[in-house]
Design a binder for these strands. Structure first.
Lengths: 204, 204
DNA sequence: CAGAAGTTTCAGAAGAAATTGAAAACATCG
DNA sequence: CGATGTTTTCAATTTCTTCTGAAACTTCTG
């Protein structure tokens, strides 16, 4: 039987899971959550809570929490099997859809609140400046705040256009600019259209 | 005296520092490091280790570590004062330069290693596939790996173009696409050209 | 409705990361 | 060279996050 192959496959998957988990921590995502996602992604097929627990050697609580968080991020979806009461989970398979979902969530969670704070903070000193711009320190301070604010707003708008329903802005740009497809001569044996497989139904 | 104004200014700065620090943690940067950067940015002028310690109420060791890390990231630079043995530190003031530096560093630290891992992992199973593509699980697995790899490479190339010496790709695009400048009718009293002051020397 | 199968919650345990503080190393000056 | 002021290092400690496991809860089935 394909025993050797299966072992190799498992090992490769485990390594992928580990690498992804490590990267997750650097981005403020818990290791386990990233690992669960990696497992679902690389496996491709729907897994249930017990599968995840066993494969990753984690507790039920942890698996449940991580899966729910992934659902909230919109990068994993529930799948039901006829005649089976268990819930199964499947990861989004299109990397670009994945990327857009992540950008959308992070914007919502981190940039938007930051922007709101910045407005508040500016209001603490603003009126005084416009009334009678005498204190140079205050003026300079507000100029810096405004720069940052304008930057965040630009990011906001750009990301919104990347993430919009029709919004494949970045992906389209990547293609137009020639960033996608046969760049460096790294041996790549198969799947020429690999980055956006059509064999995938959109998540949701 | 401008006592009221100064108090307001200090409070606004403290709030900015806190907000920035909070955001930092969500991005895998230690809170203190982000706070030190925020302080230097919003202050605008060079501060020494003791200034930072006092203002942020942190230990000498912590301040020293954080400042050095910021130097390594290339978003803060050393400044020396004539007739003063202390070192002073000043933050990059152009938000776009700051952003590019951050993208560059994160790519280098997180994406590149990930990409390297992915290549290794693919090699674990690859030869078998190209030799005799019989196991569908293996084929599918490698297709997913390739998708991810191609995605990371696209990102790599795009970010490289944003970060290159002449590379103001993203910033230029933002302007061309009309993302920069008077979008929403939020009251903005001053500094029309705020986001790209010409007063920048490249960091590093 | 009772029982079975599955999922979620949460207080405490375990683990990871950040921080301190004091000693060591370093640099500059007279 | 030794005195003096500055920066770096790192083991111990504190703080924060994540994980566990068992109980509570929900949903389905006969």
């Amino acid at each position: 039987m394909a025993n050797v192959e299966t072992k190799q496959l498992t090992e490769a998957q485990d390594r992928f899971v580990a690498a992804w988990g490590k990267m997750g921590t650097a981005w403020g995502i818990s290791r386990t959550m990233a690992e669960v996602h990696a497992l679902l992604y690389i496996t491709g097929e729907p897994l249930c809570t017990d599968d995840v627990m066993e494969r990753l050697q984690i507790s039920r609580g942890n698996a449940s929490m991580s899966l729910r968080a992934l659902l909230e991020w919109g990068i994993v979806e529930r799948v039901h099997r006829r005649g089976d009461r268990k819930e199964y989970f499947q990861a989004e398979q299109d990397v670009w859809v994945l990327f857009r979902a992540i950008v959308r969530e992070r914007m919502k969670r981190e940039v938007d609140p930051m922007r709101a704070s910045l407005y508040e903070i500016r209001d603490l000193t603003e009126d005084r400046v416009s009334k009678d711009a005498k204190d140079p320190a205050l003026v300079a301070h507000n100029k810096r705040l405004d720069s940052m604010l304008e930057f965040l707003e630009t990011m906001e708008k750009m990301s919104a256009s990347f993430v919009s329903p029709a919004g494949r802005g970045l992906q389209a740009a990547a293609k137009i600019l020639g960033f996608v497809g046969g760049g460096r001569a790294e041996p790549r044996p198969s799947s020429p259209g690999g980055s956006t497989p059509d064999s995938e139904r959109e998540a949701g």
